[in-house]
Design a protein around this nucleic acid. Structure first.
Length: 439
RNA sequence: CGGAGUGUGGCGCAGCCUGGUAGCGCACCUCGUUCGGGACGAGGGGGUCGGUGGUUCGAAUCCACUCACUCCGACCA
């Protein structure tokens, strides 16, 4: 993409409402624009990141055996009456009336709808287990939206739901998602730590939050250093095998958010030099809640013995839009965002230091052509202006690599390649650059 | 929802107290000089001051109501 043809509205001053770093950088780097309280438009640059994150989530869900579908944002109140949550959910649920006076709502979550879909389509234990997910916009009318996309009212969430015949099998489904989540966050360059969690209003008795560490995180977390140093399961993980040993490997260490933190236990279980207290952001949450909805909504299958059995369910959420902010919180410096390569909107920022200079334009154009043709995502700064400074702009938007091309380099046949994260730079010939990024 | 604030061009702000019909920095446009880490000069364009009502000869400025947004708290992917 040529910057001269792109839509990237940058801000030079910090918008005053943005208190935390991810919100500031998202506004300044032209990723989002606020539409109203807690509701954002995703501008082209931000949208690219959102889509990359979504794609990773999807790949890892599919790898773990979950099946994608898509449910609507608008739901009928009827189903929520059936589960008993229409009245329980309170003001956080946005309620709407259609033209004929039917009560509708903008879905804050989808347990009811998925249970309805499942009960209509599945009657036999032979069709179990299944894990269905979708990636869809949610709305929760938060009392106090804040921190940009980290706590919006409208947000993109991956929510998945597992259906099993018995508790043991349901636990395996839960473990599959546990492992899948470790992989998902790892692939985004995040260190996510699973922590035992309160089950909250959704209910149930087995639940973990996945927390990424960031200095500006909302909640305080306490954990064992070894958890931070642990590697996520590899792509070759066998989701059909017994995953419990892997789960135990993670859950055997102390880890708690401030709500569940027990200082005495922390001291007892974790040697002082291994004690970590940090700040974290919740990016995923998994629950096992058994038959809570399937009983209320009569979602039954016939078992081998011919009896009707309510299904055992779990639900699994990843805050996709929140992750955009979360990743920035975890990966930035005083100059701007530092995108981990897998989620970066573009892989390379190509800087033409002297637009209008024939040789420089030519060299940049050739590099841009060849890299793009090879499938490398390049944002080419070909504008003949220095609004805010070319280097500063590139650093702000945080692409993993910068290729800097100017007359001086061209004379010696070399261009400069800079890594945004490390700041390391090297001079390479054009061929070496092509080689570096296309192989 | 309780508390505290703010609304003046795209962004950041001044003006309001002591009414006289709008100003600054950045961004934007034109020309020129520049160009290897947030360039400089000159010249321009853009707002009737969140909205409604009132007081007044006259309201961004005073009064009332209203809407929106932000921050702190309780709640959450």
């Amino acid at each position: 993409m040529r910057l001269s043809e792109y839509f990237l509205p940058l801000l030079r001053d910090d918008p005053k409402e943005a208190e935390i770093v991810s919100h500031r950088y998202m506004l300044r780097a032209g990723l989002i624009r606020q539409a109203s309280a807690g509701i954002y438009s995703w501008l082209p640059m931000g949208f690219r990141v959102l889509k990359k994150i979504e794609a990773i989530v999807r790949e890892e869900q599919n790898r773990a055996g979950a099946i994608e579908l898509l449910m609507p944002t608008i739901q009928s109140a009827e189903l929520w009456r059936e589960s008993g949550r229409y009245d329980d959910y309170g003001k956080e649920m946005l309620r709407i009336e259609d033209r004929s006076g039917r009560e509708m709502l903008y879905g804050p979550t989808n347990e009811e709808l998925i249970t309805e879909i499942f009960r209509a389509g599945v009657n036999s234990y032979r069709d179990l287990p299944r894990n269905l997910y979708h990636i869809q916009w949610k709305f929760r009318d938060e009392i106090r939206p804040r921190f940009g996309v980290m706590r919006g009212r409208e947000f993109l969430m991956k929510d998945g739901y597992s259906f099993d015949l018995d508790v043991e099998s349901a636990k395996h489904s839960y473990n599959q998602m546990f492992v899948s989540y470790l992989r998902t966050f790892d692939r985004m360059g995040l260190k996510a730590i699973p922590m035992a969690a309160d089950t909250g209003p959704i209910g149930g008795d087995l639940s973990h939050e996945f927390i990424i560490l960031a200095d500006t995180g909302e909640s305080e977390v306490f954990c064992h250093q070894d958890l931070i140093d642990m590697d996520a399961p590899g792509a070759d993980v066998d989701y059909g095998s017994d995953l419990q040993p892997e789960i135990d490997r993670w859950t055997n260490h102390y880890a708690a958010t401030d709500e569940l933190h027990d200082p005495a236990k922390f001291d007892e279980l974790v040697p002082r030099e291994k004690q970590v207290s940090a700040r974290g952001i919740e990016v995923g949450h998994i629950f096992f809640f058994g038959t809570k909805y399937t009983e209320a909504m009569n979602c039954l299958v016939q078992g081998p013995d011919g009896k009707q059995i309510p299904l055992q369910c779990g639900s699994y959420g990843i805050g996709v839009s929140r992750l955009v902010g979360g990743i920035i919180e975890a990966s930035h410096d005083e100059n701007g965002i530092i995108w981990p390569e897998p989620v970066a909107p573009f892989r390379i920022g190509l800087l033409n230091l002297k637009v209008g200079d024939e040789k420089t334009d030519e060299a940049c154009g050739a590099l841009y052509q060849q890299l793009t043709a090879a499938g490398v995502e390049v944002l080419y700064d070909d504008r003949n202006e220095r609004a805010g400074g070319k280097f500063a702009t590139m650093d702000l938007i945080g692409l993993p690599w910068q290729i800097i091309v100017g007359p001086k380099g061209i004379k010696s046949g070399e261009v400069e390649v800079k890594n945004r994260a490390s700041g390391d730079r090297e001079s390479l010939s054009m061929d070496a650059v092509l080689n570096k990024f296309t192989h």
